[in-house]
């Protein structure tokens, strides 16, 4: 078991004033299974005209609302203390939606070489190792809408692409798999990995490192692919370019 103090901070600046800015955030660690959220706070600025809460289809916490008046910057900060245990997330039967690939996780014949058979956890570990070897981690080489097939064909990508390819191959091999978005210890950005279902529980596997996930991985959301896990989405009125910078800090704590 480990305890972390985390801060997820994001700031978007607009080149001109925007209005009627609706937003949806999914920037809070899960509070169930092997993970407990001991304290949490979320601030949004400018102060929104409404701020509501809900849970998405898979249980991730969402904060959403609207900033009506003109503004040229949008900031939010999600922080708190979370306790993580190194055990799989129990579920007796996986939802069949995690057995079918989506457009983002589409399997292409060239991925056949990554397939593995046998015990699903061992097979998934083999697949993760093959994904890691087949791909070069290269920030900027892909975008948010890059598909597993595109990233695999060019042989490079970031954690999102590694996770999508991992999901695509596992599902093709009959192993239920889902995409996970969360945080890891240190300073940086969000991280993405995969959970595969084996014998009554979901096991985290990080295809970027080829390793099993343990209590250093904080889950914020999971779903069929990255689009189910967007940390922030927005829509506004106005003709403006935007630039976003994100800062994540996760440190071990005794509190």
């Amino acid at each position: 078991m480990k305890r972390y103090r985390f801060t997820y901070e994001s700031e978007t600046s607009f080149s001109a004033q925007v209005t009627d800015h609706s937003f949806m955030l999914r920037a809070t660690p899960l509070d169930c299974g092997p993970q407990h959220l001991l304290s949490h706070s979320l601030t949004v600025s400018p102060s929104p005209d409404s701020l509501s809460e809900a849970y998405d289809a898979w249980g991730a916490r969402q904060h959403y609302g609207i900033v009506r008046n003109g503004h040229d910057g949008f900031r939010y900060r999600s922080e708190g203390i979370v306790e993580v245990h190194s055990e799989p997330r129990k579920e007796p039967k996986p939802s069949p939606v995690f057995m079918t690939n989506t457009p983002l996780t589409g399997f292409i014949p060239e991925m056949k070489a990554l397939c593995a058979e046998g015990d699903s956890l061992a097979a998934a570990m083999t697949i993760a190792g093959r994904v890691m070897n087949a791909m070069t981690y290269l920030p900027g080489s892909t975008g948010v809408s890059t598909t597993a097939g595109e990233a695999f064909s060019q042989g490079s990508g970031v954690c999102q692409d590694f996770a999508h390819i991992m999901v695509a191959v596992c599902r093709e091999c009959g192993i239920p798999a889902r995409y996970v978005c969360g945080l890891v210890i240190g300073e940086g950005e969000t991280h993405a990995w995969t959970e595969i279902w084996h014998d009554g529980a979901w096991y985290g596997i990080d295809a970027t490192s080829g390793l099993r996930c343990d209590d250093r991985y904080i889950t914020m959301a999971y779903g069929r692919d990255a689009s189910d896990c967007s940390v922030c989405r927005g829509m506004f009125r106005g003709l403006a370019l935007q630039r976003t910078s994100t800062k994540v800090v996760v440190e071990a704590t005794d509190e």
Binding site: S22, M24, A54, Y64, G65, I66, G234, M235
Partner: peptide, 10 residues
């Protein structure tokens, strides 16, 4: 309509 699905859910 942004966040319409949330209103529908509620």
């Amino acid at each position: 309509v942004p966040n319409l699905f949330q209103a529908y859910k509620k």
